[in-house]
């Protein structure tokens, strides 16, 4: 449905553009600018209400109320926070590399929004590619590099330690991320999200049923790549103050948070489409967004219930236990597919 709407919009804009004497290319560019604004708005809404929902869920699990003063049910709390962040002055630490320091939050956002091009919004994907999952993973794996740069530019020891932890965390989730989803690649024979969704619809079975182990491992790796609890050692507040973003304040801090929510949206959309049937089947496209919301809430509960890993314990556990499990999952899938 969204796909048809978007195609209709594109035709409308292109035809209007040619009617007033502009070439078709300019019409398409205008269309993509509008789409970009839509995507930005959409992710902003997700961040604002996701932030509110996160506080509400965490608050309830803490047996607190969560935000309830700003607007109805405290819905505008995040908006108020954004305004607060914008009005704060930014402090540059002594000896920091200013250029890199101010570029990093924007670069993070840029990378995550680039990944958003390949993420389905319902049935519509801005760029349809057969390699969309690979491209998304590649772009997400840029995150730690930027984090390290940002922490290095901060010229603070807490930040540097947080950045180094982020670099080590790559070894936790990168391998796991691709190994655990490899089963799906084998089944669909493609790296495309759309194909995975189509296949689930054809089979009448979600891949969470066919790949339960793969799903759990993928979910874990995704949470690790978001650096959320229990993998939040990069910003471990009780150890490193605020980890790699200790020195980021005001609007730059807000942008890093925003980039994080964009990343969260990407992850939830990938999980919802690859493992939970996507936009075909249950409730159609509304079901897809419902699934995204439910997975997001699951992430909140994981955060409320978990404790921070120690990095070396985590690495040992992942390489001794989870990576072999993911390999096993891959192997079993391969053998079963061969037999069938």
């Amino acid at each position: 449905m969204i796909n048809d709407m978007m195609r209709g919009l594109m035709n409308l804009i292109v035809s209007t553009a040619s009617a007033i004497g502009l070439s078709e290319d300019i019409g398409q560019i205008i269309f993509y600018i509008i789409i970009a604004l839509f995507a930005f708005l959409f992710v902003s809404l997700y961040a604002v209400f996701g932030g509110w929902g996160e506080r509400k869920v965490i608050g309830r699990s803490h047996s607190r109320l969560g935000p309830n003063m700003t607007g109805p049910f405290g819905l505008l709390q995040t908006v108020a926070d954004v305004i607060k962040f914008m009005t704060k002055s930014v402090i540059f630490p002594k000896g920091s590399d200013k250029k890199i320091f101010v570029t990093i939050p924007g670069a993070m956002m840029l990378v995550n929004f680039t990944a958003l091009l390949f993420v389905p919004f319902g049935s519509y994907t801005i760029i349809n590619s057969d390699y969309s999952l690979l491209i998304i993973f590649a772009l997400l794996s840029l995150g730690p590099t930027l984090m390290m740069l940002g922490s290095w530019a901060s010229n603070s020891k807490y930040s540097t330690l947080g950045g180094l932890r982020g670099a080590s965390l790559v070894f936790v989730y990168e391998v796991l991320l691709s190994l655990s989803i490899a089963g799906v690649f084998l089944i669909t024979g493609s790296f495309s999200i759309a194909k995975a969704v189509q296949m689930q619809s054809d089979l009448g079975l979600w891949f969470i049923v066919l790949q339960p182990l793969g799903f759990v491992l993928f979910l874990m790796a995704m949470i690790a790549s978001f650096e959320r609890n229990p993998f939040d050692m990069t910003e471990a507040d009780s150890e490193l103050v605020s980890g790699w973003r200790t020195e980021y304040g005001g609007i730059y801090f807000a942008i890093t948070l925003f980039a994080e929510y964009a990343k969260l949206f990407i992850g939830c959309a990938v999980i919802a489409s690859v493992y939970l049937g996507g936009w075909l089947g249950f409730l159609g496209e509304a079901g897809f967004f419902l699934k995204i919301i439910l997975i997001t809430i699951l992430m909140y509960y994981v955060r409320a219930a978990s404790m921070r890993w120690r990095l070396d314990h985590l690495l040992a556990r992942v390489w001794n236990f989870y990576v072999p499990l993911a390999l096993l999952n891959f192997l079993v899938t391969y053998i079963v597919l061969m037999v069938i």
């Binding site: 965490i58 699990s61 803490h62 047996s63 229990p230 471990a236 009780s238 219930a305 404790m307 921070r308």
Partner: peptide
Amino acid sequence: LSQDLGQPTSFVWAMR
């Protein structure tokens, strides 16, 4: 203790 280990939930429960 739980706050220091990155588990604010039981911290608030204890305060409650």
